[in-house]
Design a protein around this nucleic acid. Structure first.
Lengths: 256, 256
DNA sequence: CGCTAACTTGATCGACGTCAATCGTGGTGG
DNA sequence: CCACCACGATTGACGTCGATCAAGTTAGCG
């Protein structure tokens, strides 16, 4: 189904660098060994390769070891809505464990390294372990929370706010995974991706980023994003943010 | 925290009318008895009463026995984004079981009957039973899928499409729960709710519904919705819908 | 009957989309 | 090493969907 370079399978799950940030965080080292046995292969895909296709019921599910990917759906007229971006440690996709046809596709954004597991076996492995089964719920709850925020963005915020929040969100996710330490980090998205994620056009994304750049808030290009003035960016992003308790709008720590 | 009329607690979980449509669907009758023991009270709230408030970490979680509610978030300027509508059988909210502060509020849309459970006890009950813990994941996966569809609506569809899909979606959800049999059903939403859910204004919702009504596709008012021409409505809703496999855009059967 | 909340309708405005031309840059082959 | 190409970003002119502002009009309901 998906063919590409394949490598042998040492017991690497136990020391997997993304495990602390993955669905498998609460696993014992004994379970890690079992998990490693379930792993069928690891593979590398180039940017733009499809990982899952809408309508399929995948036989294999993947864990993202390295690189970026995204979930999206195409419309008949060719327009695209990106539903979420996937970073190292993410599971692609939990939804597939339900053994139902996927309602979205997944594509590699950069070159990507994946660990492949058989869907059915993996489902049984997780289902049979209450703490892992529950953890799946936890991850999904966080994912839902992130979708809620995106809905608020799309429903009630203008382009400037959406983009400011988006840049901050990506930075935060990378930091939480230890993939960024300062205010400059890898940012392999083209403006087309931002547009398709935020319900805008590339033209408008370009103009809006030009404003942010003009104000000296960010630098964006050549695969790198730098946030020069986090405070002012947060202020723009937070316009209209509100909590009954007056807090600063806590996005929960994520995994998926 | 929430005070209102309270009633005694016979063992009603076992024969609960909404159980087949709820998170508890796969429960044994023995477990139903335990569940009934966990139930602290049932209560009735009038329309517009708050059930959960953003920022709280609820001590009690609720199951919706009767009536409609909705999840939403307020912005500082008073604007509102409705995240989802909750129908009988829905759990309010799974998210609370994670013992984190809620990032949204929940309000009764109609008069509502709820069953209350202690958050902690309920969490332990579910966590300890693999099939139930897993079922929580299943429900959350479906909920995420619904959120995905809403994101596509908001990001890439115009007002007419959004409203057509919304009306169809509500009808389908009601049917699946046996709360509607023909093409006329209870519809307690005001246009303001539709607007706040779909990222529009009441004015524009009014105009758009006027079009649908003018074409003889729907009747909407007095708390009732009738779909007169499901085919044409679906056609409008489906503009731009697409599946790689060419199917008709399968929203998964829901619970939450 | 009269008050109020919800809906409707019209006129105007603005954010974002569309169309199209141009620029920049990195890769590639000669 | 340079000419060329292709793809992405940028910029300008203009169009449109939906927001905003402001009157009405219904429809419950005391």
């Amino acid at each position: 189904m998906i063919a590409n370079s394949t490598s042998p399978l040492p017991n690497i799950c136990e020391s997997c660098p993304v495990r602390p940030h993955s669905i498998y965080a609460p696993i014992s080292s004994e379970e890690a060994t079992i998990l490693n046995g379930l792993r069928r292969r690891s593979l590398t895909l180039e940017a733009r390769r499809m990982i899952h296709r809408e309508g399929e019921t995948p036989i294999e599910v993947f864990t993202l070891l390295e690189g970026w990917a995204f979930r999206f759906k195409l419309m008949a007229d060719g327009r695209r809505q990106i539903l979420s971006f996937l970073l190292p440690g993410d599971f692609l996709s939990l939804h597939a464990l339900q053994s139902r046809p996927l309602h979205f596709s997944v594509q590699a954004l950069t070159t990507v390294r994946l660990c492949a597991f058989e869907t059915r076996t993996m489902g049984e492995f997780l289902r049979g372990r209450p703490h892992l089964a529950w953890n799946v719920g936890t991850i999904l709850a966080r994912k839902s929370a992130r979708l809620d925020y995106r809905i608020i963005d799309l429903g009630r915020r203008d382009a400037l706010e959406r983009i400011a929040r988006f840049l901050l969100e990506i930075g935060d996710r990378l930091k939480r995974r230890g993939l960024a330490t300062d205010e400059t980090f890898a940012f392999p998205l083209r403006q087309e991706h931002i547009a398709d994620a935020l319900g805008l056009t590339t033209v408008h994304v370009s103009r809006t980023i030009a404003m942010l750049r003009g104000e000296g808030l960010v630098t964006l290009g050549h695969g790198l994003l730098t946030i020069h003035d986090r405070n002012r960016l947060t202020e723009i992003a937070g316009r209209g943010a509100h909590s009954a308790t007056g807090d600063t709008d806590g996005v929960p720590p994520d995994h998926a």
